[in-house]
Design a binder for these strands. Structure first.
Length: 429
RNA sequence: GCGGGGAUCGCCUAGCCUGGUAGGGCGCUGGAUUGCUAAUCCAGUGCGCUCUGCGCCCGGGGGUUCAAAUCCCCCUCCCCGCGCCA
């Protein structure tokens, strides 16, 4: 959420940003917000004047009663006030809600370095690492490979939960856990605190973290309860300090979230229709930071560096793109995607999304920082994937596939798998 | 799920019965004073606005009233006990 004061004082800045995004609809919303805000303040000022009058009369009555004087004249004066005040309050409450709702639907201000573009094809490559391995055999689709090795059962998962779910088994489970442990260890080493968050959240908390209106159709909701399954641990961690004041001495706060993630979106897997690439449920280690405003751009680079370090350690080639206006979404001021190389698909695909949300998320969540009794400020929040195992697993299954249908375990993961060097077949069922 | 008790400013607490400007303590910030890592005193310490001023704020919403922290109704959450339970 943008600061209404920014819109009042520098509407041109906000408008220029919306033009950069190319969203005419949001520009109209901005016009509405500006007009409603003006009307709101007018109505409120009128109501306040009447309330002042009411308070004066009320005090006069209290005084008169104390002095045992007659108060009927005063009470007569006050009789018509409640109705007028009520009408103005209702008007101003309605306008305030409109302003608030409008603000909640305006996107964050973009960082100046964000490229203009219509969709992900216009993201700008800013770094590459590694040389794609060449294969002298034809790579198997990872889904078929896993079924052949008895390590994943998509069919039975479909039977009991539908498409987009899987029973992972045997060494695939160990590989998944190894990826999680490796990524979590890496973050702990650089000072992050691990967090196992709730997997479900109330609507109001969710609205604080993101614009549910844009995502509700892809969220899982618990029937009959005000609970949404989390799409990422970014969300419960972001909401951790909702409605609180963080002591500024505590900043920066860096968390490594670990959780399953639930998303209804499912669609293209690229060249392979069956597989782990886009799932309704997957596991993820997430980086999340609360920091001082002046430090957030430094942190953004640190989170990106952590993500790159993890894929470098796995020896999987990747590139980094600066995500353009058409692909960046509502809450981020700037976003890097790290895209791993998928040899079977012959292209780079997103495995990490690294965002600086500046003060946008914190303001929606009513999180402030400072000293109690002292000046407060709105902290900045950042988030980045460290490891989403679904895509990480696919990257390994493609990049480390061998001609004999086995898969080599990346060196850095072996300590987490008892030194095992090769993925073995599971027990036939 | 049932019964009982609660929710007051960052934290703790008074006020509620009997309606009439929400008081105190702690912590924090600033200042005064004092030769000593201390004490004492003063002020500030929620939100909003078109800001010398005014309005709002007692978990949330509604009602009664000239006036509600206080009375009435609904809801949420927390605590204790019982029940159930992977």
């Amino acid at each position: 959420m943008l600061d209404i004061r920014l819109i009042r004082e520098h509407p041109d800045v906000v408008r220029r940003d919306l033009k950069k995004r190319g969203t005419a609809e949001k520009e109209r919303l901005l016009d509405g917000v500006i007009a409603w805000d003006q009307e709101w303040r007018t109505a409120m000022t009128e109501a306040d004047a009447l309330k002042k009058r009411r308070n004066e009369i009320t005090r006069a009555i209290a005084e008169a009663k104390k002095a045992k004087k007659d108060t009927s004249a005063l009470q007569k004066d006050a009789t018509e006030l409640p109705e007028k005040i009520g009408a103005l309050d209702a008007k101003s409450a309605d306008l305030e809600t409109r302003v608030r709702n409008g603000l909640m639907r305006l996107p964050n201000l973009l960082h100046e370095s964000v490229p203009v573009g219509k969709d992900d094809t216009e993201n700008v490559e800013v770094a590459t690492w590694g040389t794609p391995r060449t294969f002298d055999f034809e790579l198997k689709p990872h889904g078929e490979l896993l079924e052949a090795l008895q390590l994943a059962d998509f069919e039975r998962a479909r039977k009991i939960a539908g498409a987009g779910f899987v029973y992972m088994m045997g060494d695939l489970v160990r590989l998944d856990q190894a990826l999680l442990s490796f990524a979590l260890d890496h973050l702990v080493k650089v000072g992050f605190t691990p967090v196992f968050p709730p997997y479900m959240m109330h609507r109001d908390a969710y609205e604080g973290v993101t614009d549910l209106g844009e995502f509700e159709t892809v969220m899982y909701k618990v029937d009959g309860e005000d609970l949404f399954l989390i799409a990422t641990s970014e969300h419960p961690i972001g909401a951790l300090y909702k409605d609180e004041i963080i002591d500024e001495g505590q900043l920066p706060l860096a968390f490594a979230g670990i959780s399953a993630c639930f998303r209804r979106e499912i669609g293209g897997h690229g060249v392979d229709t069956k597989g782990l690439f886009r799932m309704h449920q997957f596991n993820k280690i997430e980086q999340f930071v609360f920091c001082r405003p002046e430090d957030s751009w430094t942190w953004h680079e640190k989170l990106r560096a952590n993500g790159e370090a993890i894929y470098r350690a796995l020896e999987i080639p990747y590139r980094v793109v600066n995500v353009c206006t058409g692909d960046i979404g509502t809450v981020a001021a700037k976003k890097y995607d790290i895209e791993a190389w998928y040899p079977r698909q012959g292209k780079y695909r997103e495995v990490i999304s690294c965002s600086n949300c500046t003060d946008y998320q914190a303001r929606r969540l009513n999180i402030r920082a400072g000293k109690v009794g002292g000046d407060k400020f709105t902290p900045h929040t950042l988030n980045s994937t460290a490891m989403a195992t679904s895509r990480g697993l696919v990257a390994i299954l493609e990049n480390y596939q061998n001609a004999d249908g086995t898969v080599t375990v990346p060196k850095v993961l072996r300590p987490f798998m008892g030194g095992q060097e090769t993925i073995r077949a599971g027990t036939p069922r």
